[in-house]
Structure formats: C-alpha cells, structure tokens
Simulated scan of single mutants.
Amino acid sequence: MASPIIRKQVTIRFLHRTVLFLFTVLIALFVLFVLGNIQNFLDSSQIIILQFLIAGGILLFLVAVFALLFEINYNIYLRKPYYLGRCIISGIACIFGLVIAIAASAILLLSSGLNLV
C-alpha cells in the first residue's frame, strides 16, 4: 500500500499541474478576448469569452487555494523549502484567477448596461 506521504506528493503534483494548466488557459482566453476587441468579434462571442473567463478564473482560484493549502501544510510537515517556490506560484495563480474573474464580471456588467425596464 502507498504511504500517506507519497499520496500527498501525488495530490500536490496533480494540483500544481492543474493550476499551471488553468493559468495558461486563462491567459489564452484573455488574449482571445483582447484580439476579439481588436478584430471586432460579435458581441455574443465576446460575452461567451467573458463567461469562460469568469468560470476559469473562479476555478483557478479554487484549485490554487487548495494547492496552496496542501503545499503550506506539506512545507510545515516536512520542514523542507522545496515547496516554497510552488507556494509562491500557487499564490500568484490564486490572485491572478481572482483578478481575472472580477475584471471579466465587471466588463460583463458594464457591457450589459442598466436595464431598468
């Protein structure tokens, strides 16, 4: 049977790879949104991209928080500075996901305007 330490390492590795994947997906979606503004995409296409940005940002935030908690716990438990760099990467990804989700929802809110009727 696998020991709990090896299981935690696999979990941390999986979460870290997921964080990096979602980080690159969010960057690609953001670039697609910017290029869509430059090349005059339809409004409905831009709204779909913004909704994906919101969902991806929230998902990145949640996964990065879990990865950060696991890495901090594992860093304290083993007393090795190996996971300190991964903690920094997860913290940056957590902030990035939250900022992207808030910015995309603000853009979506401002683009919809005030519908009082």
Score class of each variant (00 low, 15 high):
A2N: 15
S3H: 13
S3Q: 08
P4H: 08
P4Q: 02
I6E: 14
I6T: 10
R7P: 00
K8F: 04
V10E: 15
V10F: 09
V10R: 14
T11V: 08
I12W: 07
R13Y: 09
R13G: 01
L15C: 09
R17L: 12
T18M: 12
V19D: 04
F21V: 08
L22Y: 12
L22E: 11
V25H: 07
V25D: 13
L26I: 08
L26K: 05
I27Y: 03
A28M: 04
F30V: 01
V31A: 15
V31P: 00
L32V: 06
F33T: 06
L35E: 09
N37E: 14
N37C: 05
F41M: 08
D43Y: 07
S44Y: 02
S45I: 04
S45N: 10
Q46L: 15
I48N: 07
I49T: 13
I49Q: 03
Q51F: 02
F52H: 15
F52L: 15
L53C: 02
I54Y: 00
A55V: 05
A55K: 10
A55Y: 04
G56Y: 06
G56T: 03
G56S: 08
G57H: 04
I58T: 08
L59S: 15
L59K: 13
L59P: 00
L59N: 11
L60E: 02
L62D: 03
A64E: 01
A64T: 01
A64W: 01
V65E: 12
F66H: 09
F66I: 12
F66W: 08
A67Q: 07
A67T: 05
L69F: 14
L69V: 15
L69G: 09
L69T: 11
E71K: 14
E71L: 15
I72R: 12
N75W: 05
N75V: 01
N75T: 15
Y77K: 13
Y77G: 01
K80L: 11
P81V: 14
Y82P: 00
Y83K: 03
Y83M: 14
L84R: 14
L84D: 14
G85A: 13
G85T: 15
G85W: 14
I88E: 07
S90Q: 13
S90G: 02
S90E: 10
G91Y: 08
A93P: 00
A93Y: 02
C94P: 00
I95L: 14
F96I: 05
F96E: 07
G97W: 01
V99A: 13
I100D: 01
A101M: 10
A103W: 06
A104P: 03
A106E: 12
A106M: 12
I107M: 08
I107S: 03
L108C: 01
L108K: 08
L110W: 11
S111M: 05
S111E: 12
S111P: 00
G113D: 04
L114K: 11
L116D: 06
L116R: 08
